[in-house]
Design a binder for these strands. Structure first.
Lengths: 212, 212
DNA sequence: TTGACACCTTACTGACCGGTAAGTAGAGTC
DNA sequence: GACTCTACTTACCGGTCAGTAAGGTGTCAA
């Protein structure tokens, strides 16, 4: 049977998938190799075979995330800024439904206890996310679809910080995300048109990635 | 000597003070009784004498924080909304300078790994902080000093989420807080007047609390 | 048929974790 | 002077942590 073979080759990816879930729901310090090995039905040392140190696993998770995020951006390069904003919001909803927070959130919250390698690649990831947020509002202003006071750099940074904070606070107050999204649309001057775009369709989760 | 006596009675407070620093810089899961005992020059069991379980220590920290925050609010009840906003910003700056994040930030980030008692009082604390933020922008609109689209509830929630997110992201990007503060002032329509209020004086840290 | 290799397992280590039991020093009370 | 209480200490517990060493097994190529 080839199924046996498939299951074997899958292990590394399965480790990453489960580790990612654990990272985003519990944080890096609060999950262990035991959590993963128990979840996958393998032994602890099997994980060390693929990721010698926990640090290696952490770095691999962030790197995979960066690749996935780059594809997420590329996939909707052609969309209008307001549409891209809604995709960003949908991403946030997806995390919330899974009872997770966004990677930049746990990385920055736990930063001082993380190994240096993770801090470094984490910094790159956060910079990329902020740059995307800034890009959206900058083009939104440029094409006239968004109106707001202040600078695109400030507005992008605010948007990024806001969504990260809202995703965390939503664990205490489930209305936080909806409330903040609505307010952000208002502040960007696109309240009317996006009111309908709120609950439309689409399961674009950015969750594929079969590579590595 | 009475100094001996003072030093004795101080232990509980010293434990709380050090634990608070550790909580805000490392998170609840990433500090241990050993960190505290080593820092204070006492034995591990001495901490267990004052706080039988780590959960008790965590709850005590949050409760103390709620009392302190209540006093912080009360102390500036007479100020104008825009002034209160600046105090809120100053609070954030203080955390940043100490390489800490705000309590609501770690509590929500680590929520799913925290004991139930901590989750409960944490929820109360977060609700109080949000209510304060909402109150500021609601009164700001009412007295005409602030102008913004959307609702006070939305704007307050956004403000709270934004500052929490910015404080965390500032660990990667030191400009995050300043950038977000500036943008928030713009969005509230009080950019000009507060530009000068940015780097003024004052060491109002809300850091006293000798009780308990 | 042999050897190399990928992918595991079994079995273990030392460090650290939160937590407990029992004892003790000193101060205050009767 | 015995008693009690607070505020610790010493000494220990079982559990969990990341990490390692050595061995086994199936696959594939020469």
């Amino acid at each position: 049977m080839k199924a046996e073979n498939d299951a074997r080759g899958d292990t590394r990816r399965k480790i990453l998938d489960l580790a990612e879930t654990l990272l985003l729901s519990r944080g890096f310090n609060a999950f262990s190799y035991q959590h993963i090995s128990a979840g996958l039905g393998v032994r602890n040392a099997a994980i060390h075979y693929h990721f010698a140190r926990k640090t290696d696993l952490g770095v691999a998770l962030i790197e995979r995330y960066r690749r996935r995020f780059a594809r997420f951006i590329a996939a909707q390069a052609g969309l209008a800024p307001a549409e891209q904003l809604e995709r960003y919001f949908m991403l946030t909803d997806t995390y919330f439904q899974r009872q997770q927070i966004c990677p930049s959130g746990i990385l920055s919250a736990e930063l001082q206890t993380l190994p240096a390698e993770m801090q470094q690649v984490g910094g790159l990831f956060v910079a990329e996310m902020r740059a995307w947020a800034v890009d959206i509002v900058a083009r939104g202003r440029a094409d006239g679809s968004m109106q707001y006071a202040g600078s695109p750099a400030g507005m992008g940074a605010l948007m990024f910080a806001t969504m990260q904070g809202a995703l965390q606070l939503a664990r205490f107050d489930e209305d936080a995300i909806g409330s903040v999204k609505r307010q952000l649309r208002q502040l960007l001057g696109l309240a009317a048109e996006a009111a309908g775009a709120n609950n439309t369709n689409s399961t674009a989760t950015t969750h594929e990635e079969s590579q590595q």
